[in-house]
Amino acid sequence: MEISNYIDLEDAAERFMKNDELFKKFLFRFPGEQGFHDLFKLLEEEKVEEAFKVAHSMKGVTANLALKSLNEALKPISDILKAKIMPGENEINRLKDAYEEVLQLIVEIELEGRTLFS
């Protein structure tokens, strides 16, 4: 998988002081983050307000980790939820796909022991 499609490496390098280990330490913790599971569950239950808070939080964490594809997929969902409207199935599915891709990418990076900041 092409990392730069999913992670804004330049941004990550800058914010993590070009410390590859430090960035990876947190990146590898991302799959354990409960937020997305909560978000999908809340969306299923159509709990709009609670879902917004979690979506907003996930937007923050994906931005912090420079997970750009996932962050971009979250934006429309978060905006719609903020207006207290349920997002459509398409947006939700797009988000689920983006999430799965990122999880897969992280596994790859971990397994192959890749260096991210050159």
Binding site: L22, K25, F26, R29, F30, E33, G35, K53, S57, M58, G60, V61, N64, L65
Partner: peptide, 12 residues
């Protein structure tokens, strides 16, 4: 912060 990773990054 409600997201643990965010807290951990700041802590670090």
């Amino acid at each position: 912060d409600d997201v643990e990773i965010n807290r951990e990054i700041l802590k670090e």
